[in-house]
Nucleic acid binder design. Structure first.
Ligand SMILES: NC(=O)c1ccc[n+]([C@@H]2O[C@H](COP(=O)([O-])OP(=O)(O)OC[C@H]3O[C@@H](n4cnc5c(N)ncnc54)[C@H](O)[C@@H]3O)[C@@H](O)[C@H]2O)c1
Ligand SMILES: NC(=O)c1ccc[n+]([C@@H]2O[C@H](COP(=O)([O-])OP(=O)(O)OC[C@H]3O[C@@H](n4cnc5c(N)ncnc54)[C@H](O)[C@@H]3O)[C@@H](O)[C@H]2O)c1
Lengths: 230, 230
DNA sequence: TGCGGTTTGTGATTGCACTCACAAGCCCGT
DNA sequence: ACGGGCTTGTGAGTGCAATCACAAACCGCA
């Protein structure tokens, strides 16, 4: 079991377990945690937690649970968070500024160490302690500073172009905040964060429940009419 | 087919098709689009596009493709974007400010119409043309102003408390930016956007490809040694 | 040492989503 | 009117992920 490749769905949940475990460890110095408890904290099914963790190895003790510290270390290692990944951000506008000065990333092993933009008015400016450079310096910076991850926070019109520059510079992991799909070679991993999409999905289900409510109301009225008639 | 419930995975993709169609319609006045083309733009498989769209109805024409305008309207309607959904945001810090003044949401039918915080220093301030109110006024505001969606952008420690207040006020759709899981009744829909999680997933795959590269390199060296020996 | 209570790890099963492949259907030119 | 070239819509097959259910294993206690 533990030599099999870890399913994508499991990888996506590991960070959630990590977060819950950190809460347990930092908050009160909890020593062990059961799959049931961890499931509650992370908001998933207990069996799923156990199966997920079993892909990493047999790190639990039957009848007891999982050692919080040990599990923390194992997940951290599995996610590759024992080393930190120098990260470049391209497009230093409203969103870029908020993200670049956010302290929460550093806590999780991501240091945004390089900022780039195409606008001369922005270049040279200092954001979160880092000087913004011209996008043309990207390739050199990646080579010299070992940048591994690229964050795109330009408008959608520039996203594809920026993605190509990142790929050309040798970056294999991209987080895209622009609401557009970017095309990259198959060995490059792109993840998209699109806030409007999330809102639109909420909208769909909201509308659906509203529609059901309205239908119920209509039904009730209909029934009342029939009762009146009798 | 078109009376069956729409699968979750399809709902999650509709916003992407919507975006691509808008690009087609606004950019050059494209009249029709094939599933192949739409798939390329949205970055998915053509068969998937067709199946997804077939859940909405038979809106395509064989041998021709889909009428862009008509399909746009149908997806918009299906997602509930023909009406707009007044949205409340709670926690007006760094991220909250960036989001509240972002114009991109309004374009997609979401108006952030009410801002709340718990900090007296923030309350009364104007952000993106809206006055920040105290969180205690939330319930009344929801009732009077018909707020439908709540966005949580407080630190994780406050997220659960805020979520409960939103639920208590009658909100059924929540977008949570705090990196923590919130517990809500089953009739409330929560979506989480967690940037660190996305980075951690990238980290996992990045580490994996690095490990493979290192292994290859080791192999190459080993082979060279053997060649030398002969 | 043995027993009862507890919790893990994992085969087995179910369900969902993706992909394939192709008949049905449309347009256009002749 | 009809045939050729396209493109949709969808049944069938496949694979992955979620859930169930239980044997195996552990702890503490008598
Ligand atoms: N601001 C928000 O709250 C918010 C919310 C959701 C999504 N987004 C998305 O995030 C992205 C950024 O939003 P923003 O509000 O920060 O935009 P912005 O206009 O404030 O900033 C964009 C920055 O990117 C730079 N840029 C443009 N083209 C570039 C290129 N080719 N190479 C390098 N730099 C380039 C610009 O000079 C500018 O500094 C957009 O795609 C937006 O849709 C923003
Ligand atoms: N800033 C970023 O770029 C960024 C990036 C990723 C994630 N996040 C997450 O987004 C959230 C907000 O981040 P931020 O940087 O804006 O934080 P912040 O500290 O700047 O702002 C938080 C705001 O929430 C308010 N608040 C706290 N508790 C509250 C409560 N119980 N009720 C109402 N209001 C309350 C505070 O008064 C403050 O104004 C955090 O959870 C953070 O982890 C932020």
């Amino acid at each position: 079991m533990r030599n099999r490749p870890i399913p994508e769905a499991t990888v996506a949940r590991l960070p959630m377990y990590l977060r819950s475990l950190l809460d347990l460890a930092e908050g009160r110095g909890v020593m062990t945690v059961s799959s049931e408890e961890l499931a509650r904290l992370a908001g998933v099914n207990a069996a799923k937690v156990r199966k997920d963790l079993s892909y990493l190895g047999s790190y639990g003790t039957r009848g007891v649970g999982y050692d919080v510290e040990y599990l923390l270390y194992q997940i951290t290692r599995e996610l590759g968070l024992t080393q930190d990944w120098p990260t470049a951000m391209i497009g230093i506008g409203n969103l870029g500024r908020a993200l670049a000065s956010y302290k929460g990333f550093a806590e999780r092993g991501f240091r945004i160490t390089a900022l780039f933009d195409a606008d001369d008015n922005v270049i040279g400016e200092e954001v979160g302690g880092i000087i913004v450079r011209h996008i043309d310096e990207l390739k050199e910076a990646v080579a010299e500073e070992g940048l591994c991850i690229g964050i795109i926070s330009t408008p959608p019109s520039g996203a594809q172009e920026v993605a190509e520059k990142l790929v050309d510079a040798g970056i294999k992991s991209i987080l895209n905040f622009a609401p557009s799909h970017v095309n990259v070679p198959p060995d490059v991993n792109v993840r998209r964060v699109d806030l409007s999409v999330e809102l639109q999905i909420l909208s769909f289900y909201q509308q659906r429940t509203k529609a059901i409510e309205t239908a119920r109301e209509a039904n009730r009225r209909l029934e009342n009419q029939q009762t009146d008639r009798r």
